[in-house]
Each structure stands twice: as structure tokens, then as C-alpha cells.
Amino acid sequence: GPGLTDLFKTEKAAVKKMAKAIMADPSKADDVYQKWADKGYTLTQLSDFLKSKTRGKYDRVYNGYMTYR
């Protein structure tokens, strides 16, 4: 089956995709945050998933999740 690194890459891609969806349409934020909360994502995990070469690119999404939880 898929190894943990593959799983991480898949999760990371999914999280980034959802983060971009929030940035494009902030009204989606609560739905996405709820999904992440259901998956039990911690802020540390989210921070790892949303690492970007562009500093602060996903800060709004991260901060939103922090206040959501």
C-alpha cells in the first residue's frame, strides 16, 4: 500500500487545494475548517501542510483555523 510519505504528499496536496479555495472564496472557510477539525488536524500539522516558498502566503488560512478551533 501507499507509504506514509505518499500519504503525507496526498494530504498536503488536498490541504493546499482547500486553502486556495478559501483564499479564492472566504465563504468556504468554515466548511473547510470543519473538515480539517473532523480529521483532527493540529495547527502544527496544518503549518507543515501549508509550507510555501512564498512567506506568509497561507497565513490567513492558518490564522482562520486557529480562531475556528
Rank of each mutant, 00 (worst) to 15 (best):
K53Y: 06
V61S: 01
K57Q: 08
S52M: 05
Y62D: 01
F8Q: 09
Y41Q: 00
S47T: 11
Y68A: 02
T5Y: 06
R69V: 14
L4D: 13
K20G: 06
S52N: 05
A37E: 06
Y41C: 02
K17S: 08
K17I: 09
A19K: 00
D30W: 12
D48H: 15
D31Y: 11
A29R: 05
G1L: 11
K17T: 07
A21R: 07
R55V: 13
R60M: 13
A37I: 12
T44F: 09
A21Q: 11
K39N: 09
T42I: 03
L46F: 02
T67A: 15
T42V: 02
V32Q: 03
D59I: 09
S27P: 03
D59N: 08
D31G: 10
K35Q: 14
A24W: 05
R55L: 14
A14E: 14
N63A: 14
Y65S: 00
S52V: 08
K51D: 10
F8L: 11
L46H: 00
G64C: 04
T44C: 15
K51L: 09
T5Q: 12
G1C: 15
A14P: 02
D31S: 12
K20W: 08
T42C: 04
R55H: 12
K12V: 06
A13I: 09
Q45T: 05
L43N: 05
S27M: 07
A14V: 09
K28W: 05
V61F: 02
K35Y: 14
M23L: 14
K28N: 08
E11D: 05
V61G: 01
G1R: 08
Y41S: 01
W36M: 02
A24S: 11
V61E: 01
I22D: 00
M66E: 11
V15K: 01
Y41M: 09
I22C: 05
P2H: 12
A24R: 14
M18A: 13
S52I: 10
V61Y: 02
R69A: 07
T67C: 15
T10S: 13
F8W: 15
A19S: 03
Q34L: 06
L4S: 12
V15M: 03
A24P: 01
K9Q: 09
D38K: 10
T42A: 03
D30G: 10
G56K: 05
R55E: 14
L50R: 01
K20A: 10
D38R: 10
I22V: 12
A21W: 08
K17F: 08
L43G: 07
G3K: 10
Q34V: 05
L4W: 11
R69G: 04
G64Y: 02
G64T: 02
E11C: 06
R55A: 12
L43F: 07
K57N: 05
G3H: 15
G40D: 04
D30Q: 12
A13E: 09
A21C: 11
K28E: 05
R60D: 13
S47Q: 12
G3P: 12
K9I: 06
Y41N: 00
G1D: 11
Y41P: 00
K57W: 05
D59Q: 12
G3M: 11
W36V: 00
D48G: 14
K17V: 07
K9P: 07
D30Y: 12
L46M: 10
M66W: 08
K20H: 10
R60H: 12
K53R: 10
T42K: 04
Y33P: 00
T67V: 14
T5R: 13
T5W: 04
M66D: 07
D6K: 08
A37V: 14
G40I: 01
K39D: 05
L50H: 00
L43S: 07
Y33N: 01
V15P: 00
F49C: 04
P26M: 07
D38E: 14
Y65M: 02
A21L: 14
T44S: 12
T67L: 14
F8M: 11
T67R: 15
Y65Q: 00
I22A: 07
Q34C: 08
G1S: 12
S47P: 01
A14W: 14
G3F: 07
D59T: 09
T67I: 15
S47V: 09
Y33D: 00
G1I: 10
D31Q: 11
G40C: 06
F8K: 09
L46P: 01
L4Y: 10
D6W: 04
A29G: 06
S47H: 13
P2D: 11
G40A: 04
V15I: 06
T67Q: 15
F8S: 08
D6Q: 09
D38Q: 13
K51F: 08
T54Y: 09
K53Q: 09
G40Q: 05
K28Q: 09
A29K: 04
Y33W: 03
L50I: 03
F49M: 09
D38G: 07
G1E: 11
K53T: 10
G40E: 04
A37G: 04
D59P: 02
T54G: 07
G64M: 03
T5I: 12
S47A: 14
T5M: 09
L43A: 07
